[in-house]
Design a protein around this nucleic acid. Structure first.
Length: 453
RNA sequence: UCCUGAGUAGCUCAAUGGCAGAGCAUUCGGCUGUUAACCGAAGGGUUGUAGGUUCGAGUCCUACCUCAGGAGCCA
């Protein structure tokens, strides 16, 4: 429509074009008017910018077109970029021309308004909710967290080896699995962890990781649960528990560092208290790295006993039991960095975890609890490397031995100490973004009660 | 699965057992610096579903449905 050629730019990069006439391709995010002045706000996926349209300065048709346009109509807009201290982003656009690509009907206006909505309504319109600045910012941070996570392993000699998503049996035999028919007579299940498979690839390649979707058919209805979520899992041959904790610490530090480097603006949109994240990677007085606190299960139990005696938690923690959500929240609230709780009682942990030689009733495992009550974001362990012990564990847990024969083979042919952990991406995103529910951390959350849209 | 809570206009919410209401959104009008703009007006309702109590039920009772938060379990 414009007779002259103007550069097509993104809102994120518009500062480079101050004083120039440019074209944006996007959507109408909001529009205000003051008589013969219009203030349309445009968005293009990279940000938002307010345009100014004085009636006297543009063709009648441009003014009337914008005035009658519904929110989220798509359009291209041409105008001159001007720095303005009144604008939140620092720039405004003096609109010269608009071309409507697709107008939204007034009979069915865009359902997501700038006012508040309920959770159910927003989730029902998730495909449109994604367009709002906060949701877009969260997805950008999610993408960077995933990139930083891969990057950490890729640059440290890890080989990405993704396990199958369709599996013949339960990994741990505890969680509920999504079941399906697999051709004739056989059942297949959606994976709930690729761990057993990457133990195999780790013994082949040394340092490996997997990154993919995971499925849990648990009837969990909380702010921390999805039925389909993404998990990144490293597995390393010849690595023992202490080294595994070092790995987890470096991993989390790297991700937080990258997010702080790249997403200050997004974190501001989300409303995240950045100081809480800076504390994660804060250095000591001489610039030295400050390790994450490491707390043995027994010491964590003592901490909880004291907290209960002082009335800081409602229910006493019974020694030998796993920590409940309120317990984890209390423990993590005592530190401003993620806390690594290790050596849980073997009886409450998975069959494949190596017993502690110093106390065989304990497992060489670690849970990383995120600060601010976000709970467990990482669970990991050193794996049983003895054939006989592993076989006995499988039998003790009433797991089908035949299905685990290949897994036992790993202990038959050159078994070595090895360790790994898994981090749930959505929980990490929820923590880093300071969200109160994981459903906002993934484009289309799958939960107990929702599989639409 | 258990516990708790919520379902009223497109959305967010009010309404002592006694006329069904507001803000936003939509439509119309006003306003040359608005930031979830503001001001005026109009249209918009099978109060989640099915029963019951009552002269009268959005409100009280029963069952069911949907959703949310929590517990357990987990990442």
């Amino acid at each position: 429509m414009s007779e002259t050629t103007t550069p097509i730019v993104t809102i994120a990069s518009i500062g480079q074009y101050e004083g120039q006439t440019v074209t944006l391709r996007g959507w109408l995010y909001n529009i205000r008017s003051s008589g013969k002045l219009l203030f349309p706000t445009f968005r293009d996926g990279t940000g938002t910018i307010q345009g100014i349209v004085p009636k006297a300065a543009v063709p009648e048709q441009v003014f009337e077109t914008l005035k009658g346009l519904q929110l989220e109509s798509s359009l291209t807009v041409t105008g001159k970029v001007r720095a303005d201290s009144r604008a939140p982003s620092g720039y405004e656009l003096d609109v010269e021309n608009v071309e409507v690509i697709s107008a939204v009907s007034a009979e069915e206006p865009f359902p997501i308004t700038l006012k508040e909505h309920g959770v159910d309504f927003l989730m029902e319109h998730r495909h449109l909710w994604l367009r709002t600045p906060r949701q877009s910012a969260i997805l950008r941070v999610r993408a960077s967290i995933m990139r930083a996570a891969s990057e950490f392993f890729d640059t440290d000699g890890f080989i990405r080896t993704d396990p199958p998503i369709l599996t013949p049996n339960a990994c741990e035999g505890t969680s509920e699995l999504f079941e399906m028919d697999y051709f004739d007579n056989d059942k297949a299940y959606l994976t709930q962890s690729g761990q057993l498979y990457i133990e195999a690839t780790a013994l082949a390649l040394g340092k490996v990781y997997s990154f993919g979707p995971t499925f849990r058919a648990e009837k969990s209805k909380t702010r921390r649960h999805l039925t389909e979520f993404w998990m990144i899992e490293p597995e390393v041959a010849y690595l023992e528990l202490d080294g595994l904790m070092d790995l987890a610490e470096g991993f989390i530090s790297h991700i937080v560092t990258r997010v702080l480097e790249q997403h200050r603006a997004d974190l501001k949109v989300i409303g995240r208290d950045v100081a809480k994240l800076e504390a994660i990677i804060a250095r000591g007085p001489n610039g030295e790295r400050v390790p994450f606190p490491r707390l043995a299960y027994d010491d964590a139990h003592v901490m909880l006993e004291k907290a209960y005696a002082e009335g800081k938690i409602e229910n006493p923690h019974k020694y030998g039991d796993d920590f409940g959500s309120p317990d984890e929240t209390y423990i993590s609230s005592q530190f401003d960095k993620p806390v690594m709780v290790h050596r849980y009682p073997a009886a409450i942990k998975a069959f494949y975890m190596q017993p502690d030689p110093a106390d065989p009733t304990k497992a060489l495992c670690v849970d990383v609890l995120a600060p601010e009550g976000y709970g467990e974001i990482i669970g990991g362990s050193q794996r049983v490397d003895s054939y006989d012990l592993l076989k006995q564990r499988i039998e003790d847990h009433d797991l089908p031995l035949a299905a685990f024969q290949w897994y036992l083979d790993l202990r038959k042919y050159g078994s070595v100490p090895h360790s790994g952990f898994g981090m749930g991406i959505e929980r990490a995103v929820a923590w880093i973004c300071g969200l109160d529910h994981v459903r906002e951390t993934i484009p289309f959350a799958r939960t107990l009660n929702r599989i639409y849209p």
